[in-house]
Amino acid sequence: MSLVARQLALRAGSRTLVDALDLTLEPGEVLGILGANGAGKSTLLAVLAGLALPVRGEVALDGEPLAALPPLVRAQHIGLLPQADEGGFLGSVAAFVALGHYPFDATPDLAPLLAAWELADLAQRPLATLSGGERQRARLAQLAVQRPRIALLDEPLTHLDPAHQARLLAWARSEADAGRSVVLTLHDPNWAACHCDRLLFLHGDGRWQLGTPATLLTPDALEGLYGPGTAALWRQGDRGQPV
């Protein structure tokens, strides 16, 4: 059950990005998506979130096609952290984070979440006055308020210092341990090797590979994905070590 994509085809203009992708998201897993710029990672996340339609194929949540779900019901199960910034928001950090609770009726207790993302001291500041990393933490906290069963994060490591990358990792792992699924796009093979249960490689020309880090992450596969000379970025020896 959970989120199932069948025979997905994604295109950008006339270019096929992904072809015939079959993906079943297991409860309790962290899935990393890797691929070059423009390979279709963000497009795939939007399709998995039910916010864009694939050229072919379909995505279903518990057997129900996403296109048939009312938007609010969908938002109670699936959350997305997009890359775009929240430039238009003029309110406080606390008000921004609280918007994550929109799909639900009750008022959330924000204090523990703000503390968890080290935003308690910033809570009353206007969001616009925060640094890039602080704002990214506010966006993550907003997603954490929504508490989606399927969390889709587009480059969540952006702007985060190592301590907060570790915080993000701990959050993703605790979500997975609670039976939820976390999908994230990222560019760091080391991070992917250490912290993802499964990886999806998108080659940007329709081809894709799905497997465990142990089987997929080889120097040849990385050069196949990113181009010659890129395998040097990967420290194979650190594999499996915590951050």
Binding site: P71, L72, R74, A75, A84, G88, F89, G91, Y102, P103
Partner: peptide, 20 residues
């Protein structure tokens, strides 16, 4: 009003929170 609060976010984010 509540929907308009969410609409201050990017369109993609607002849609992901269930706003049409």
């Amino acid at each position: 009003a509540r929907r308009l609060d969410v609409l201050q976010l990017s369109p993609l984010k607002a849609a992901s929170l269930g706003v049409a």
